Computed example of a mutant assay.
Amino acid sequence: MKIPMLDLTEQYQSLKPDIVKALDEVMGSSHFILGENVRKLEADVASYSNVRYGIGVANGSDALHIALLACGVGPGDEVIAPAFTFFATAGAIARAGATPVFVDIDPLTFNIDAGQIVSALTDRTKAIIPVHLYGQTADMDPIIALAHKYKLHIIEDAAQAIGSQYKERKTGQLGTAACFSFFPTKNLGAYGDAGMIVTDSEELAEKMRVLRVHGSKPKYYHHVLGYNSRLDELQAAILNVKFPHLERWNELRRDKAGIYSQLIRERLSEEHVKAPLVGKHDEHTFHQYTLRVKNRDALQQFLKENDIETMVYYPKPLHLQPVFEYLGYSEGDLPETELACKEAISLPMFPELSIEQQQEVVGKIQAFYEGAV
């Protein structure tokens, strides 16, 4: 049984008539940039996030960069972020001219350790980027308290966590602004690159709208240096078809995660495999179902040989990446992050994943460890 990390074919077939119709309408309108589809998606995602404004941009990486610039982050500033995340988090900080300051993670959730942020603060700290990794929110109350105390911006990196909740508050409403990615693999995925920023601040929303169109307002009059980063109508039309299904898809992901966790409890020892922890106040959306395991690389190779695809997010932490060598970090500086890079492995996860496929995945993991001990 060949089991992929992600299979979008069944989802597409179920939505194909609506998607084809939506794309045909865009083609017929001949309006491809910042039209009605983008405006509808912006309004719907903002409302879903319990804030007032959505700003569609070209991708999730640009969303982070533009949000930082709108908040006034630039050269001489520092921005605190975890080192266990996708490169775009820190890349956006550096491209804004600021300095990434990395903080270790909570080993139970893979998210930034809120208790370690205060020791990383300096008089140059301008913002904090908590990453809601794999679909679970960071521990936000202490982060919000620090931001209020020291007058810092919080920019949520919610690229993997649309629809996730922390104490009944949605991602998107937990900071100054939040950034979503609609990369095709995400819970709400386009058929190419796409992203969005949401915020409750009218002032910031207007700055972001200007920044995404070359810093121009009105057209051809440029008061700031902006970018060409617009969410196009074709991708927005696809996302508008998909958006009403997001809650059901997220619920299915939670169901699949529950099945995985039950199978793992029944068949595997915690000495070898630790299932993901869901915080008691969290509503996880399981963009990824990520384990901590012993002999990770050997396990991944074994599963590959048995036609089971897995992914390692992330094999090398950001503070040890060559591009950030100038920051002066060394191995051992963030021990929990570095350990997670050696132990984390993500299993196949998508709403249409069958119980038989899950049983096969866990069965092969069981076979690996029973053969290894």
Rank of each mutant, 00 (worst) to 15 (best):
M1Y: 10
M5G: 06
L15W: 05
A22R: 00
V26T: 06
S29N: 04
N37E: 13
A46H: 09
A58Q: 00
N59P: 08
S61V: 02
A67T: 03
C71W: 02
P75E: 14
A83H: 06
T85C: 12
A88I: 09
A90H: 00
A92Q: 03
A92I: 00
G97Q: 03
D104G: 06
D113N: 14
V118W: 03
V118K: 13
R124M: 04
I129T: 07
L133P: 00
Y134A: 04
A138D: 05
D141W: 05
H148N: 14
K151H: 15
H153M: 04
A158R: 06
A158E: 11
Q160S: 13
S164M: 12
S164T: 12
Y166L: 04
K170N: 14
T171W: 02
L174I: 11
T176G: 04
T185D: 07
K186C: 11
G189W: 03
G195T: 02
T199N: 07
S201Y: 04
K207G: 04
R209C: 06
H222S: 11
V224F: 02
V224S: 10
L225K: 10
Y227N: 01
Y227A: 06
S229N: 02
E233A: 05
P244W: 01
H245V: 11
E247R: 10
R248L: 15
L252D: 09
K256Q: 12
A257D: 06
A257C: 06
G258D: 12
E266M: 10
L268C: 12
S269R: 14
E271Y: 15
K274L: 15
K280L: 14
H281M: 14
L291Y: 05
K294F: 11
A298Y: 14
Q301A: 14
Q301G: 12
K304F: 13
E305H: 08
N306V: 09
N306K: 15
I308W: 08
E309L: 06
E309P: 12
K316N: 15
H319D: 07
F324R: 08
S330L: 14
E331A: 14
D333K: 01
E336L: 10
I345F: 06
E356M: 09
Q357V: 13
E360F: 08
G363H: 12
Q366Y: 11
